[in-house]
Design a protein around this nucleic acid. Structure first.
Lengths: 188, 188
DNA sequence: GTACGCATGTAAACGGTTACATGATTTG
DNA sequence: CAAATCATGTAACCGTTTACATGCGTAC
């Protein structure tokens, strides 16, 4: 199997990370954007299931520009911010990603669950405290997500609301689980 | 607020990552272990909700040893593998972590959900294909987790089985969600 | 005994996070 | 106009992942 790029379907020269698609996707939705605009847009939407620090939104567009997937201009007045636009190649990369199912499911990587796994070194009280804390946090998160859902449900398309729906279901599943642990802590 | 370590409760000199606790926790459960033993132990248990490459199990114990949390010996015969044991300080760090609720909930970071969020650039067929693929993957995962649950349920304590239970519930929640998307794909 | 595959280990590259730095804008 | 807060940006650090390297056992 050759590693050479196919001459008629050149692969992008850089590996694209999830954040790459996040950036390209947001620019695809919003049109030309500055990093700060992306930050605000992400904060109101995609950050609720894919958090990242805003500094990513400065470095990543530069890499994508170097790879020919974005184009960079300067604002006329004010701060002369960098404004990024999808190139043809960028749009193509985005489209081609969207029609390729990832072939994998998410990984939990949940610190509380990790503690639960090792909880046989833990007193019953500590376990109840852990579960109680998780219950509180999931209640808060559910409240936040419900507020967002209420606020945006009319303006957004159903597809963009779907992740929020899944997020709510997941949070409720976790809430139930930790509630049961708190109410009836398993013995070691 | 001083950043100096408190003289009577010295903080560990290194930042401990999730994998640090994973390693210490596994050694706590198993007793003295070589990296390869840890790899096998993790593969049968904790990897199902916290995956990582085996190379972590070589670097991390070294760091923990340097921090005084593990002790390193050499096997007598054979390959003279390194055998790691929890020190007093290591056990203390593990215990103290276990009684400190993380104060945060997991983050999804699900590629398929990210695609769904940007799916308004996607045809209905592509969306159904994505959902169908996720359905297949979650069915497989559920089958694997159920097999593990069946296999280990007698030998393991209830607490160590709990993460598996949560994993199953999460997988079923996702399965339901994607099934609905596949059956009735939302319009943009 | 040789070839294949798995066991075991090391190290460098990449990308995400943390930390800091500076300019703008609001508020009292 | 001083101070506080927010907007905007950069850079180093650190952990994870990727890639490679070598040893050991086993089947034929």
């Amino acid at each position: 199997m050759s590693k050479q790029p196919h001459p008629f379907a050149p692969e992008p020269s850089v590996r694209l990370s999830p954040v790459s698609y996040l950036v390209m996707g947001l620019i695809g939705l919003r049109g030309p954007s500055t990093p700060y605009q992306l930050k605000r847009a992400a904060g109101r939407s995609v950050n609720y299931f894919w958090p990242f620090p805003h500094s990513q939104l400065y470095g990543e567009p530069e890499r994508l520009t170097a790879a020919g997937l974005l184009e960079e201009e300067r604002e006329e007045g004010g701060r002369h911010r960098k404004v990024y636009t999808l190139t043809k190649a960028g749009r193509a990369a985005l489209d081609s990603w969207l029609i390729s199912p990832p072939g994998e499911v998410f990984e939990m990587r949940d610190m509380a669950v990790l503690q639960l796994f090792f909880s046989e070194f833990m007193s019953r009280e500590a376990l109840v405290a852990l579960a109680g804390d998780q219950v509180r946090l999931y209640r808060e998160r559910i409240a936040v997500l419900e507020a967002i859902a209420l606020h945006y449900s009319e303006r957004q398309g159903r597809r963009r609301m779907a992740p929020l729906d899944l997020g709510l279901r997941m949070a409720r599943t976790c809430l139930d689980f930790w509630q049961e642990v708190a109410d009836d802590p398993p013995e070691a």
